[in-house]
Design a protein around this nucleic acid. Structure first.
Length: 314
DNA sequence: CCAGACGTTGTT
DNA sequence: GTCTGG
DNA sequence: CCAGACGTTGTT
DNA sequence: GTCTGG
């Protein structure tokens, strides 16, 4: 029997351990901790919550998954264990219809988008997106998190809120989109969380000299032509520039205004030409301010989210 | 041929 | 839908 | 990105 | 921990 002591655990939490051998129900029952909510199947496998079942079965080649919950400092004994412990975007849009139209269409809004400020744009929410339709710039509301056309429902389990610019031309999922379906996501700014000893500290990042940044994106149509037709998009990411590296090692691709036309033009297909646009913007374009953790919950959508906290050395 | 992946970020 | 792996 | 859920049987 | 939802 090997004993584990979870001294690092600060509060009640659930862990996934990986065992070389499956504990029997009796042993597992005897070890203490908070095991009252396990269930069993008829082969003696032990589960906590339904989806753990799949994890446990999938792991049989390398060991068996067992989920346990312990209080801080609680110990738990496990049989025959060389135990491995598997413990292992957000943005804001405060511009108006008018500001958006003058910035990108050089005119008043023809078909108003009826925008209201979003201080906490989160994945799966809609955002106005600029693309070229029949040669004309056009805004449409699209869902942030690209849903591939072949998904049976307008949702996906894939992590498609971002697309890595370094590999997007090789990606089975994205490569045909980056060649023909590019778009611009107009953001007032975006948020990043900086890891610190005391947890994650959120920052807002925006352009120093412009109220709106043009973020490179790709979009797709789900069930094209059908009544339930929907649009969705993904934001291109790249390595952090020197400025952003203080906060995070990745950042969105912010386009130079002179390259916006090229990025939107669906007739441009050459990878080399497009790849040149997918670079980190100059550090001098950006400013950042630490904000409160109010931003953490997507439910908080008020101007207070943008309020800087007192300056602090980092 | 069919089955299964297709993605990102961050952490160990 | 399209590609890779078995 | 973060927040929040994550389960069953039987009984009231 | 993993997964889903916003």
């Amino acid at each position: 029997m090997t004993e584990l002591r979870w001294s690092a655990v600060k509060s009640h939490k659930t862990f996934l351990c990986k065992l070389d051998e499956r504990p029997t129900g009796r042993q597992a029952r005897a070890v203490g901790g908070r095991l009252s909510r396990f269930s069993y199947d008829d082969t003696g496998f032990k589960y906590l919550f339904g989806y753990r079942l799949a994890n446990a079965r999938a792991a049989t080649d390398e060991g068996v998954g067992l989920v346990v919950s312990l209080q801080a400092g609680e110990a738990m004994a496990l049989p025959n264990a060389s135990i491995k412990i598997l413990m292992c975007g957000r943005a804001y849009e405060t511009y108006s219809d008018e500001e958006l139209s003058f910035r990108y269409l050089s005119k008043s809004p023809v078909t108003p988008l009826a925008l209201s400020p979003n201080y906490n744009l989160s994945p799966t929410q809609n955002s106005p997106v600029l693309r070229l339709v029949a040669g004309e710039r056009q805004f449409d509301q699209m869902r942030w998190q690209l849903v591939p056309a072949w998904e049976p429902a307008f949702t996906t389990k894939l992590s498609t809120i971002n697309a890595r610019s370094e590999t997007v031309f090789e990606s089975r999922l994205y490569r045909h989109l980056v060649v023909r379906r590019r778009c611009i996501v107009p953001l007032s700014g975006f948020y990043e969380w900086k890891k610190a000893d005391d947890g994650k500290r959120p920052f807002k990042i925006h352009l120093r000299d412009e109220p709106i940044m043009s973020v490179a994106g790709i979009w797709d149509t789900w069930h094209p032509g059908a009544p339930e037709e929907r649009y969705s998009f993904s934001i291109m990411t790249t390595a952090a520039n020197e400025f952003m590296r203080e906060i995070h090692d990745r950042m969105p691709v912010i386009l130079d205004r002179q390259y916006e036309d090229a990025w939107l033009d669906p007739e441009i297909h050459e990878q080399e030409a497009l790849q040149k646009l997918l670079k980190p913007c100059p550090s001098s374009w950006l400013v950042a301010a630490e904000i409160s953790t109010l931003v953490n919950s997507p439910k908080n959508n008020t101007p207070a989210v943008l309020q800087p906290v007192a300056a602090k050395s980092s």
